[in-house]
Write a protein that binds this DNA or RNA. Structure first.
Length: 115
RNA sequence: CAGCUUGGUCAGAUGGUCGCAAGUUGAGUGAAAGCUCAGUUUGAGGAAAGUCCGAGCUUCAUAGAGCAAGGUGCUUGCUAACGGCAAGUCUAGGUGACUAGAAGGAAAGUGCAACAGAAAAUAACCGCUAUACCCCUGAGUGGUUAGUAAGGAUGAAAAGGCGAGGCAAGAGCUCACCGCGAGUUUGGCGACAAACUUGGUCCGUGUAAACCCCACCUGAAGCAAGGUAAAAUGUCCAUUAUGGUUGCUCGCCGGGACAUAAACACCGCUGGAUACAUAGAGCAAUUUAUGUACUAGAUAGAUGACCGUCAAAUACAGAACUCGGCUUAUAGACCAAACUGCCAC
RNA sequence: GCGGGUAUAGUACAUCGGUAGUACGCGAGCUUCCCAAGCUUGUGAGGUGGGUUCGAUUCCCAUUACCCGCU
C-alpha cells in the first residue's frame, strides 16, 4: 500500500485532475496527470463498479497500489489519478508493473525528465 | 457393499523479504495539538451479501387519543423481541428414514365463477310419469295440469357415493356399507384423536394469496441518527402565522424556513440480551450456576505483493453503529445418526 | 451505508384474474415514370424461478437487472 503522504484524498482534487489533466493510456488502465500541489508525487486510484464485485475491485486497487509503491521514486512530481479498465481484473501484479513502467517512459513522466 | 435422508464441523497451513491500519512502549522534535523514527501486539465472513423481519441506541413530547393504513394467523412452549426457533396436531408427497404447508371464518355482508352448458346457486329447459286431481273424449293413447333431481354432449366444479328395496315415474322415500354434521364419554395443558349415540332440511358449491369479518401486533425517522467545538451573507414569514411530531383530526413543543458560501475536527465507535467448556432443569428450543476467553474500528476508506514447502490450493465472497433471525450464493474435505436394497453368517 | 421505485413487441406506453392492445418502426402489396406521402395487409412481447387459483401480465414469495433520493 502507498504511504499516506503519497495518496490523494479530497474529492475536490480528483475533480480538478479529471477536469484539467492530460490523459495517458495503457492496456489495462489510464492515467490523468497534472502539476503537483506538493513537493512530492500524489496518486489516487479509481476502480469503477463495472470491473467486478467488491472483492475484485479491492484486489485491482491493491495491485495497482503495490506497483506504484515499488516505483514511487520513478514518478515525476505531479498528481495522478489511475483509473482501472475492465480488462484489469485478471492481470497479475507483474503485468501491471511492466505496463506502468512502459507508460512512464512513453509519456516522459520519469523523474529524470522532470524539470 | 451400494443408494438415499437428516444433522454438524472446516473454509488453507507454514517459513522468508518488502509494505498498509490501529493500539501500545521508547527516543527525537514542538508552546500545544501533533509529527517522525525504532520495537512490539492485533488486524475481514459463514454468509461480512440481500436489506426481508425483530430489537438495542439516538432525536422528535413524557410516546399521548381517535380514525385510516399495514402486518401476522393450527396448538403449546422458548426468547429482549420477531414474520424466528423447538416439540406436537392436521393435510399432501415418499416403500422408508423423512420432507413441504400464510393451515382462523364462506351460516355477518358484498363481489366474481370467462367459454361451454338446461342450469354456476331460492336448479324443471329437454326428458320420465299420469297414481290422485282438473278439463276434454266413444275410449286414454291427449294436456296452457300435476308429480319427478334417475338420464341429458358441457365444465376446474353440477346439489353426498355405491348397491338393494320401493314407486305411476322417481327421489335418503327406506335399508346395508362408506363419507359428512351434531351430541356424549374417555385421553390430552391444547390443537386434536378414539369410542358410542344420533341426524335424511345431508336443501346455502367454490374463491378470503377478492373486498371483508374476527383475534393479536405496530407512534415516526434513522449513525448521512445525534452530540461537543467552530460558524459568514442574503431572502421570506412572524403567534388566527409558520415549522416539527404521522397519512388525517385532536393534542403537544419551538421563533422558524429557504438559498449561497465555508466546514466536515472530535465524540458516537465497539465488552456484549457475547462465545466456549463442565454440571443442574427440560423430549427439545432454551435456561441457571461455575470457570475460561475476548484486543478490526478504517474515513478516497487498512488485511496486500513476491519466493519456497505441504499430491492440489481452487468455491461463494470484503467490516463501515451493534446484536437475534430469515433468505440467497458456495469448490473441496471430514464426522455422526437413521432408512431402503443386495450379499454373507 | 440508508431509503424508495420500475421491468410488457425493435422503441414509447396501455390493460378489472378469463385468447394482451395502441402508436411509431420493420416486411409485403397497391398507387407513381421513380422516390416521398397515402391506402391495404402481415410480423413481433409479459425479466427469471416458485406458490395461491379451474385459470396469473395481473395476487403472494424469492431472485436478477436498471433507475431515483439522502453527501
Amino acid at each position: 500500500m502507498l504511504q499516506r503522504l503519497n495518496r490523494l484524498k479530497k474529492r475536490k482534487e480528483f475533480n480538478y485532475i479529471y477536469k484539467k489533466g492530460q490523459i495517458a493510456h495503457a492496456d489495462d488502465f489510464f492515467v490523468h496527470y497534472v502539476r503537483a500541489f506538493k513537493p512530492y508525487p500524489q496518486i489516487g486510484i479509481s476502480v469503477s463498479k463495472q470491473v467486478g464485485n467488491s472483492v475484485i475491485r479491492s484486489r485491482v486497487k491493491r495491485i495497482i497500489s503495490e506497483a506504484c509503491r515499488l516505483n514511487i521514486d520513478k514518478f515525476a512530481v505531479k498528481n495522478y489519478v489511475i483509473t482501472a479498465k475492465e480488462s484489469a481484473k485478471d492481470k497479475t501484479s507483474l503485468d501491471i508493473e511492466k505496463q506502468l513502467l512502459r507508460l512512464l517512459k512513453k509519456y516522459k513522466l520519469n523523474r529524470e525528465n522532470d524539470v
